[in-house]
Design a binder for these strands. Structure first.
Lengths: 232, 232
DNA sequence: CCGAGCCGGAAACCCAGTTCTCATCGGACG
DNA sequence: CGTCCGATGAGAACTGGGTTTCCGGCTCGG
């Protein structure tokens, strides 16, 4: 607990010896090495998911692509599942950052919410190519996200946290401004919005009928969600 | 084409001989036998999905449970995937029938639509136990449905047809009555509704915040979808 | 009664995830 | 600078599950 950063305090505490410092220093380099290795695996994973377009990638492919060995893979990940989970968490984190930046361009609470939904809808739509060279996945990860939601609700909930907290904030602001209905708790509202937006692409598949253009789809969806399906 | 039902017409056509009739008769009994076998596999599959609560069932389990052999399984199904697909189609068909009956209890177009959404939401909610002894699955099949939507959009679209046609009908009626907005094609509207309703349970998982009671969830969802998230 | 097709049983094959073994390498320490 | 130890690479081996195949017995129509 108190030894989080041993190098920051002088060795007055007899429980922190030079040995401890040495160990800590050693661990630091080890950690750095480990991080680059983990990163290499993750990068390889993203590349494969992006190119192959699915989460049905093989561990061997990831290993080959990363130029490392199976041995190392299993040293850093408890299994394929944990690897995909790490990939997913990384993705959510990255997506949340990206959306945060885009939302920041808007001034009004209503606009910010609208921007969030439209942009996230874009990202989750199939055919959306990653813009940044690395670490940006396609909609393929939505598949794994859904699988995760059914098989491991606990981990899934945690993985979505970055996106959730961002959206809850936007929803709270919008509610405070009187833009959103307030008879549903903001957290629950955000959950429904996230789910609905993320998996809306499936609606096109089910119905076999798409919007006029791909870009219209996002706006159309926003209007449906914001105004409802009823006529008033 | 013209020989769909050979037993219905006398053998005037020289291309339809007694041999053909015999073959047809033989095929009839064979068909009956085959149907009972297929049914046994499907029943076993439903039981496993219901009890085990997931689509990660093993072919061996299905075979054992059905009291038949692996040999037979692969005689009737091209593989595990086709079996799950058959299971899913059967499920959608059954669900559509059930909903059709329930919707039939309502008179007004608006009420019928409302009933459809609420009841379907109930069915797709985890924890909903099958009421009829057999052939009624839990929400576990939604997982496979989603997987199907990503990996085989064509088959998925076809599998959802029974539900879609029922819902499209309801939507068309509601639009004609002026209850629904008409700026979105009914087919597309139905697709969005179906997707949103079916996977709404995931919203609870993502947000970690449920409605007051399980039954409230369905009504709450309906209001969100019908009136939208905005305040007017 | 005969032959064709169907079926149960079981072995075998293949693929992918996982584990294990062993040789090697590189930094830490004395 | 030499030794030691943990991390790593290379790849074989194991495992579980889907898939295929083969054999022999059965039924059913003719």
């Amino acid at each position: 607990m108190a030894t989080n950063n041993p190098t920051a305090e002088p060795p007055v505490d007899p429980t922190i010896s030079r040995l401890d410092l040495a160990v800590a220093r050693s661990l630091d380099t080890a950690r750095a090495r480990a991080e680059t290795r983990v990163k290499r695996f993750l990068d390889a994973g993203f590349e494969l998911v992006n190119s192959h377009g699915g989460t049905d990638i093989t561990v061997q492919d990831v290993v080959d692509r990363s130029g490392q060995s199976l041995r190392s893979f299993y040293q850093y990940f408890a299994g394929k599942y944990e690897f995909l989970l790490a990939l997913f968490e990384e993705l959510v984190r990255f997506t949340a950052e990206q959306l945060q930046a885009q939302v920041g361009e808007e001034d009004q609470a209503a606009d910010r919410l609208h921007r969030f939904v439209v942009e996230y809808h874009r990202l989750c739509r199939p055919g959306t190519k990653p813009r940044t060279p690395r670490r940006v996945p396609t909609s393929a990860m939505a598949e794994f996200g859904q699988q995760l939601l059914t098989t491991h609700p606990k981990e899934a909930s945690k993985a979505f946290a970055p996106l959730m907290s961002l959206l809850v904030e936007l929803v709270d602001d919008a509610m405070a401004q009187g833009v959103l209905r307030t008879d549903v708790p903001s957290r629950r509202m955000a959950g429904v919005m996230l789910q609905s937006t993320m998996f809306n692409a499936f609606a096109t598949t089910i119905s076999g009928s798409a919007a006029k253009s791909a870009d219209d789809a996002s706006e159309e969806f926003w209007h449906l969600m914001f105004e409802g399906i009823g006529s008033f």
